[in-house]
Design a binder for these strands. Structure first.
Lengths: 341, 341
DNA sequence: ATAAGGAGATCGCCTAAAAAA
DNA sequence: GTTTTTTAGGCGATCTCCTTA
């Protein structure tokens, strides 16, 4: 067992290990990084000394010598309305992915100085690049970073705009909603409605456009009526009000496509209140497959983003630092639960 | 305006600035860190050169030389049930606080190897210490870190257990619930009920104990009946079921003290469904003053944790690294909204 | 004597080339 | 001639002397 260390004691360096093992510093370094060029006996001796001294590689010195920053920055926003824990889970997965690549995820608090903070970290050799989530149309952060030559990847991009000169990764929101519409029509529904946030984030617009496009393509005229396409305010009570308006209208839809799991939850709650059985009475789909959808006990059919793949790509692009700009549009997946029978 | 830089170009060092300004490297360093000992004319010249070359201090080299780690680790859990975005907001605030102290918040993904990851970062001079949230009784992470001599602060601690040898910061959950009970009794309520999670997290137990203690002290016997103290499962549907059981019981409470804002939200939704006006019909309080309470449109009276102060203390303890173990129990604050009239 | 600036060593690690086995 | 190990040198910033006006 390892003895507790006194605080403030200098941590052992390679030189200490070298002395202890009776070899040169270089041999210790090689034993760690290129074990193949060190003889087995020496390697074992070095390893024993490292254990004895409880040696750890000094990551800062290593980073300096290799000119290889260890951190990846993540621009975290102050907070999101009606957060459904999707981003919460995603953040954890992203941190894990960074660790697998020998990096660490560092949060950059968003406020007035986030770009300056990125500059300091990037030019200070601390961060290899940045991940920028929650992209909206005309997001000024993207050109600001580009102009400064700071590597980054946006989580969110416009698939119909080839002109973006920066990397992005996103789920095909349009296609996701189309999956939901197709699923519902295949169940016999022809009176649909859409419930979501107004445009702002890129993904929000494409979720709405996906609905409009799918209904148009399938000739579902009535599902495109003004009262059938609802855009809500950010507060949860707004979602409930919109859901209620849909379900109590003169010509209520038999199925509701929601832009988020929170909207779907709102439909669930209002339907319960009105005595409408969800699934058989009114079908509803969500988006993101957050815990609200699968683990709230409601069983909400939802559209899953390939979280793991997204995290992998975001990190990979920053670590590899290829020259070509990458736009990665990923396939969503429909997760069917009891809210659509 | 700054010209865009070519990727891969070497970043200017102090030596470059020194050459450009016609001074020694040391003078540049002094101009940055101890401007008072450099003459004004020289200082200006150096500053102009720094601007011209777009110089940034290499944080890695600085960290190595000073043996001063720049990062503070945060052990982020995979996900929380019924997340109410409190932790979400808190994480952002914490990152901002770290930045104010010249540090950065690094996420350590929790899984099987989090302690090892902490070791690598701490002994690798990368992280000064760690913040451990979501503390449960007998949490093995705390002794594991202590034993290894790794500095950390827990966000969550047992105020009635003096024996903990580690730093912690927490809000006085008991007192918070007592504030809620007192508020409700002062409004004339004497038939209360409690709605929360079963024990597990330290704060969860003390929220419940706070309720039991307050009712006992005030002689509210009926509010301590088994059917009045509800512990729910983690899924949102469980919260709704418990709220329904309370509101539809033979002897329903006139006020419900909830351990989280999510529980209070559940009460709100069920009350609406039952046609009971919240506030006048049944009063309800939440906990954490998350966006659900204040920004959901419901107006839920809630108990606010002093978020800013907590973040400040957590970071301060790690940055100062005093020798004495600190246990900081902070005062909560009652935020009255329309859910209690 | 004081104030301003400079030369050299150092933090811990790794690359490249030379030396030893 | 190969395999193994060592000797220099330097990444970029800072600290400790030390020199010069």
């Amino acid at each position: 067992m390892t003895a507790p260390k006194k605080a403030g004691k200098r941590k052992p360096s390679m030189a200490d290990v070298a002395r202890h093992a009776g070899v040169s510093v270089m041999t210790v370094s090689n034993a760690i990084n290129r074990p193949d060029i060190v003889s087995e006996s020496t390697r074992e001796r070095v390893r024993a000394s490292m254990d004895a001294l409880d040696y750890r590689n000094n990551l800062v010195a290593r980073s300096l010598r290799l000119a290889l920053p260890r951190q990846i920055g993540y621009l975290i926003g102050p907070h999101r309305f009606a957060a459904d824990a999707y981003m919460d889970q995603f953040l954890h997965d992203l941190a894990a992915t960074c660790e697998q690549h020998g990096r660490n995820l560092t949060l950059i608090s968003t406020g007035s100085h986030e770009i300056e903070a990125c500059e300091d970290l990037y030019y200070g050799q601390m961060a290899a690049g940045f991940i920028v989530p929650d992209i909206w149309f005309g997001d000024p952060r993207l050109p600001a970073l580009t102009e400064r030559g700071i590597p980054f990847v946006a989580y969110g991009g416009d698939p119909h705009d080839e002109s973006a000169t920066w990397n992005w990764v996103d789920t095909d929101a349009e296609k996701g909603i189309i999956l939901a519409v197709d699923h519902l029509t295949s169940l016999g529904h022809s009176e649909l409605a859409y419930l979501g946030y107004p445009d702002g984030l890129i993904t929000t617009r494409y979720r709405r456009l996906g609905y409009l496009g799918a209904c148009t393509a399938r000739g579902l005229e009535s599902s495109l009526a003004p009262g059938r396409v609802m855009e809500t305010g950010p507060e949860f009570i707004d979602l409930l009000a919109a859901a209620r308006a849909l379900l109590t209208s003169d010509d209520p839809p038999t199925a509701i496509v929601s832009a988020t799991d929170q909207h779907a939850l709102a439909v669930f709650l209002v339907a319960r209140e009105l005595g409408i059985p969800v699934g058989s009475g009114v079908a509803v789909t969500g988006f993101d497959d957050s815990p609200v959808a699968g683990e709230s006990g409601f069983g909400i059919t939802s559209i899953r983003q390939p979280k793991d793949r997204i995290a992998e790509l975001l990190v990979e692009i920053l670590v590899d630092e290829g020259t070509a700009v990458r736009h990665e549009l990923l396939e969503p997946e429909l997760i069917v639960r009891s809210s659509t029978v």
